[in-house]
Simulated assay, not measured.
Amino acid sequence: MSDGPLTKARIHTIEGGLISVECLFNPKEYQIQRSNNWGPADNSTKNASDLTFSGSSGAKLSLQLFFDTYLRSTGESNTVKDVREYTDKLWRMMNIQDTLRDPKTQKGRPPRVLFSWGKNWLFNAVITTMQQQYTLFTPSGMPVRAMVTAEFQESLEHPSLMAGSSGSETISERLRQDASSYDGDLRQKYGR
Rank of each mutant, 00 (worst) to 15 (best):
S160F: 09
N43M: 08
S165I: 02
D102E: 09
G164P: 04
Y70K: 14
L136G: 01
N78D: 13
M130V: 06
A48L: 11
E154V: 01
L186A: 07
D68Y: 06
F123Y: 05
L90E: 02
G16D: 04
S155L: 02
Y86G: 01
L175F: 08
Q33Y: 02
S168F: 02
E157G: 09
M1F: 07
D183A: 13
T79R: 14
N120E: 12
K46V: 13
V144Q: 01
S160E: 15
T45F: 10
D3R: 04
Q133L: 12
S57R: 09
S56Y: 05
E15G: 03
Y30D: 09
P139R: 14
N43G: 09
T13K: 04
F66Y: 15
S181A: 10
W91K: 15
K46P: 02
I127D: 00
R112I: 10
N124T: 12
P40W: 08
F66Q: 10
F67Y: 14
V21K: 00
L100T: 05
L71E: 15
G17H: 12
T13Q: 04
Q131Y: 06
S44I: 09
I14N: 07
L186W: 03
M147R: 09
S2N: 05
E169G: 01
L61E: 00
Q97H: 10
S160G: 10
R176F: 01
N78L: 14
T74K: 15
T129G: 02
A163H: 11
T135M: 04
E157F: 11
A150V: 14
L51Y: 12
L51G: 12
S44H: 14
T13D: 06
I19G: 01
N120P: 00
N36I: 15
M1Q: 02
P110Y: 07
Y30G: 04
R10N: 08
P103G: 11
H12I: 01
F53I: 06
L61W: 00
S54G: 10
S116V: 12
